[in-house]
Design a binder for these strands. Sequence first.
DNA 1: GGCCAGGACTCAA
DNA 2: TTGAGTCATGGC
Length: 296
Amino acid sequence: MLTTAITIKQPEDFSFDACLQFLDRGFDECLYRVNVDDVKRLIRLQSGLAFIEVSSKDKQLVVEIEKGEISQNDKEEVRDYVIDWFDLNRDLKPFYQLLNTHKQTQSFTQDYFGLRLMGIVDLYEALCWCVIGQQINLTFAHKIKTRLVHKYGDKINKDGVDYYCFPTPETLQNIQRQELVDMQFSKQKINYVINISQAFCQRELDKKELLSINKDQQMQKLTAIKGIGPWTANYVCMKSLRDMTCIAYGDTGLSSSLHTHFATEKKPDKSTIDKIFLPFAGWESYLNFYLWRSLS
DNA sequence: GGCCAGGACTCAA
DNA sequence: TTGAGTCATGGC
């Protein structure tokens, strides 16, 4: 195993602690491990698995990479990964100015200062996670995700701790259904996960391709797969494709947050939500994300 | 024990 | 296009 480190300059309006706190907000997350001042995870590069540890020093992110061999390409890939994960290439100033102009959201600029819209870089993982989380509570959702990852995900052991990657579509497309039943997946969820896996294996879904088409086309491509509805499509556009104009209509968490902060009905309809989000045009995803953040 | 959970599907009208 | 029924089980 070789070790090397790269550094990434932190943007303005960035708080590593705020991001760590979000990552560690009370759920048992099986795909990374948050410590007091770093986060560690196993990621999949084109050339194989790499273990990374991200910390902050002197207004820079320090990313230690551990891998059998480390090429220049690997370093670039890790850099891109971390930039994407932490959404580092974004200037939040305009967003904070907008938050400050509304009394309902003013406190966010203090409470969550420097919090980035933490992404799910792997589109396949993001979609599977949505399916798992559909219509069940998050605690249970994390439980069954962990069972899936522990059984089918790649693993390394580091200082006595196991680190896992999310399974590949190739692995899950031919899975024995009974094994997922045993993990307490519903039959619907099993079908959806397998559908999505096959779509990736057959190249019907591809992150790069989706990034090259417009939002309507993205939604159409995504929702053509059984199991991906409008909520899931919006969620992955926000967290994986980095579309900044997403609103998770129908999301129970968003509804209750809007009820709290904007005194809406408990389940506001689309036009009510649109009205609230209208002044935040271009920053809908971030407002949605901060509203979610205010729940936990 | 009952309601709800980071929904989406089918099917009827 | 809209609404009810269904999936299924843990958490509170």
